[in-house]
Simulated scan of single mutants.
Amino acid sequence: MKLREKIDKVLGIVLAVLMAVMVVNVLWQVFTRYVVGEPSSFTDELARYLLIWIGILGAAYVSGKRMHIAIDLVPSRLTPRAQARLSVFVNLIVILFAVTVLVLGGARLVYITLLLEQNSPALQIPLGGVYTIIPISGLLVVYYKISDLLNVK
Rank of each mutant, 00 (worst) to 15 (best):
K2Q: 12
V142N: 01
V24S: 08
L3N: 09
P80D: 09
Y131H: 05
G128W: 02
W53E: 05
L57W: 02
P135F: 01
I112P: 00
A122I: 05
K9I: 04
M67L: 15
G37T: 07
Q118S: 05
G37K: 06
T43M: 12
I54R: 08
L104T: 06
L57D: 04
V142M: 05
L127G: 02
V152A: 03
A16C: 11
L15V: 07
S87H: 13
V14F: 04
G106V: 06
E38P: 01
I56A: 02
L11K: 10
S76Y: 10
R77S: 10
I52M: 14
T100K: 09
G138C: 03
T132A: 12
N151D: 11
G128Y: 02
E5P: 00
A107R: 04
N151E: 12
N91C: 12
I133E: 00
R48A: 10
P135N: 08
V74I: 15
T79A: 14
R81V: 11
R81G: 06
I7L: 14
N119T: 12
L115M: 10
S87L: 10
L15T: 09
V35S: 08
D8I: 06
M19E: 04
P39E: 06
I133W: 00
G12V: 04
G128R: 01
V141A: 01
A70Y: 06
T79F: 10
A82M: 14
P121Q: 08
I93P: 00
V130K: 01
A122P: 04
R77M: 13
I54L: 12
V103Y: 00
A70H: 11
Q29W: 11
Q83K: 13
L114I: 03
V152F: 04
V24Y: 13
T32Q: 10
S147F: 12
F89Y: 15
P75K: 05
L46H: 01
T113I: 01
I93R: 08
Y131A: 03
Y144C: 03
Q124L: 09
I134F: 08
R108P: 00
R81W: 07
N25C: 15
V36Y: 09
H68V: 05
Y131C: 01
T113V: 03
W53K: 01
I7S: 02
L51P: 00
S87V: 00
V36T: 11
